[in-house]
């Protein structure tokens, strides 16, 4: 059987791969980032740029540690808004995507409208939301939901539609129901698309929450930044940006790690992904 020779060959290449060791890609990103920060530090000192225009990274770092507890409170507010908003967009978006995939009527009526609405700048709806829902949590949650809703739905629809015709026929030939085909074939097959949507969606949800806080709030990182800006406390503005960056990257990473755990087969499948 020729596949036996093939089998041995494949196993031995696997061993070779295990032995080789490479510098992780993230190493170069880290080095570059550190270099840029050092340059920033040096330039602000050398060119004597006043702190209210551009504070040094050291000042920002020190301030970050001094204000940790205050920052944590605001971060918690923003995080709640983001997670509730994103969760809501999943809870509404995924079922809508499923109905669009199964209903020709909805695919022809609702779906084009959704794609159209997506082109609106969602932040322009913020003032109306303030009129309707006031200064509370709901306004921010709805804004975060609205802005992350479209990438979630559109990617989910693409994902659910990406099932191979022959794979669908395989399910049919086994005599199983459409519902079973969905859970055994369509859903797992759509996971890469779903996660692509989640990654865009979660980052946009942060944008939504911050814009909401700019417009109407008494708490949260957006509010903190706005007030610091008004007092010309540039240092605190930068501290907020750093915290927002950490928040955004962390949320993205959570989705990314979930993706890896749920789809171990996917990344190894792509060129350059497995190394």
């Amino acid at each position: 059987m020729n596949s036996k020779a093939e089998a041995n060959r494949m196993i031995s290449t696997k061993d070779r791969q295990m032995k080789s060791w490479k510098i992780p890609k993230s190493f170069w990103a880290a080095v570059t980032l550190i270099g840029l920060v050092v340059m920033w530090e040096l330039l602000t000192v050398v060119l004597a740029i006043p702190a209210y225009i551009l504070p040094t990274p050291t000042d920002i770092g020190v301030r970050l540690f001094q204000e940790t507890s205050m920052l944590w409170g605001h971060t918690w507010t923003t995080l709640t808004e983001v997670l509730l908003g994103f969760g809501l967009s999943l809870a509404i978006g995924i079922p809508i995507a499923i109905t669009i995939v199964y209903s020709k009527y909805l695919a022809n009526s609702i779906y084009p409208i959704i794609i159209g609405i997506q082109c609106l700048p969602m932040v322009s709806i913020a003032p109306i939301l303030v009129i309707w829902f006031g200064y509370g949590l709901i306004t921010k949650v709805i804004l975060a939901c609205l802005i992350s809703f479209f990438p979630v739905v559109i990617n989910a629809v693409n994902g659910f539609n990406s099932l191979d015709k022959e794979m669908h026929d395989l399910g049919r030939s086994l005599g199983i129901s459409e519902r079973k085909i969905f859970f055994y074939f369509r859903l797992p097959n759509a996971l890469p698309h779903l996660f692509a949507g989640f990654k865009v969606g979660i980052t946009l949800a942060v944008v939504g929450a911050i814009v909401g806080e700019f417009v109407a709030s008494e708490r949260g990182l957006g509010y903190l930044q706005l007030t610091a800006n008004a007092r010309l406390d540039t240092e605190l503005v930068f501290v907020t940006i750093v915290v927002l960056a950490i928040l955004g990257i962390s949320l993205f990473l959570v989705v990314h790690v979930l993706e890896r755990i749920l789809m171990p087969w996917y990344h190894a499948n792509k060129a350059g992904g497995g190394q």
């Binding site: 191979d164 086994l174 087969w265």
Partner: peptide
């Protein structure tokens, strides 16, 4: 049926792919 494409499920191991019809039926 054996199709021209193998239509194996990428998320199932070889053994689980073979067992798929029994899992479903």
């Amino acid at each position: 049926i054996v199709f021209q494409k193998d239509v194996l499920l990428a998320w199932r191991s070889v053994l689980d792919n073979v067992l798929l019809p029994l899992d479903l039926k």
